[in-house]
């Protein structure tokens, strides 16, 4: 079974935000929630870089470690998902996540306390695959449809890669050899340093 991973090549990201828009459109994400966003570091200074960021589906996910109600689980493909039925919206996962992935809609969107929302690697949630209930709570289950995440598919510079971690790593390794400089894979080590 493939271990799914994201990789954002900071040398290629041009901050076009197509990944952000594609994600919101594909999953009909409510206003105020950005499952994916583009972070710019060293803004306006030498060394400025942009990085497309969402849940990285970490091998040793810190969100799972702090959750007081056990709402997270990891699929056999390594995708970290959560149950909005169990989530109590405490926000502890937001503080634990080095990528700022968990999002909290305003009151009323998912119940009075605001259930957490985050990137699902386009893998839905605990509801039946491709059911209307799954789409309503978690968005489209593209993995069940045999497709990869829409954000990476839409990336015009192929800065954002998603898929089998070994294949993603091989593609990136070839890039590094070809261009001869800079790793640029921000967050890869943080997310996947512990092998699953």
């Amino acid at each position: 079974m493939a271990r799914m991973k994201f990789l954002c090549d900071a040398e290629r990201c041009i901050e076009c935000n197509a990944c952000v828009t594609a994600c919101k459109n594909e999953h009909e994400v409510p206003w105020g929630v950005n499952r994916r966003r583009v972070v710019t570091i060293q803004d306006g200074k030498p060394g400025e870089r942009s990085i497309s960021v969402a849940c990285m589906h970490c091998s040793d996910a810190p969100c799972m470690a702090v959750c007081p109600v056990d709402c997270f689980y990891q699929t056999d493909q390594g995708v970290v998902l959560h149950s909005k039925d169990l989530c109590i919206g405490c926000g502890y996962c937001f503080y634990a996540c080095p990528f700022g992935a968990p999002q909290f809609p305003q009151a009323g969107n998912y119940g009075s306390r605001g259930k957490m929302d985050k990137c699902t690697f386009c893998a839905g949630g605990p509801e039946d695959d491709m059911s209307s209930g799954e789409f309503q709570k978690y968005g489209r289950n593209r993995l069940a449809e045999g497709k990869l995440p829409i954000c990476a598919e839409m990336c015009s510079t192929k800065a954002l890669l998603a898929g089998d971690g070994d294949q993603v790593a091989n593609i990136f390794r070839e890039r590094i050899v070809a261009r001869g400089f800079g790793s640029g894979a921000w967050g890869w080590g943080t997310a996947y340093s512990i092998k699953s």
């Binding site: 109600v69 039925d85 169990l86 109590i88 919206g89 119940g111 306390r113 605990p126 509801e127």
Partner: peptide
């Protein structure tokens, strides 16, 4: 069904076990 349906107005967070 969830506390919001069974005990509307409760302080309990909305949790369901599927």
């Amino acid at each position: 069904e969830g506390p919001d349906k069974v005990t509307p107005g409760t302080k309990m967070p909305i949790q369901r076990m599927k």
